[in-house]
């Protein structure tokens, strides 16, 4: 039977997405029975969700990050 260490490794590396259906089923069954490994899944999901939010928030132009940045970059490119 697959161990908690192996399940954690497969989940945190994204390797589980590339495994065959039998291995994925094995992982799913393990997760149904193991609250600790399910917690790892939740940790990774929360991490990814918040990381994406962080990326979206940083899309708000700070002074110097927005149109001014684009203008400066374009200006230099056109001078070359």
């Amino acid at each position: 039977m697959i161990s908690c260490r192996d399940v954690t490794k497969l989940i945190t590396s994204d390797q589980v997405l590339y495994e065959n259906w039998l291995k994925r089923l094995e992982v799913k069954v393990h997760l149904l029975m193991c609250r600790h490994c399910s917690r790892v899944v939740r940790q990774v999901e929360s991490l990814r969700k918040s990381a994406r939010e962080l990326w979206e928030v940083s899309d708000q132009p700070d002074p110097g990050d927005g149109d001014e940045l684009e203008s400066r970059v374009l200006h230099k490119l056109l001078k070359k």
């Binding site: 940083s58 990050d65 490119l77 056109l78």
Partner: peptide
């Protein structure tokens, strides 16, 4: 070096590249 096309590419990608560099 068509200015319109350069502007289009810069507008589309400058900010994500900048944010990735900061990240």
């Amino acid at each position: 070096r068509d200015p319109e096309l350069l502007a289009k590419i810069v507008k589309e990608h400058a900010r994500p590249l900048f944010r990735a560099s900061r990240g």
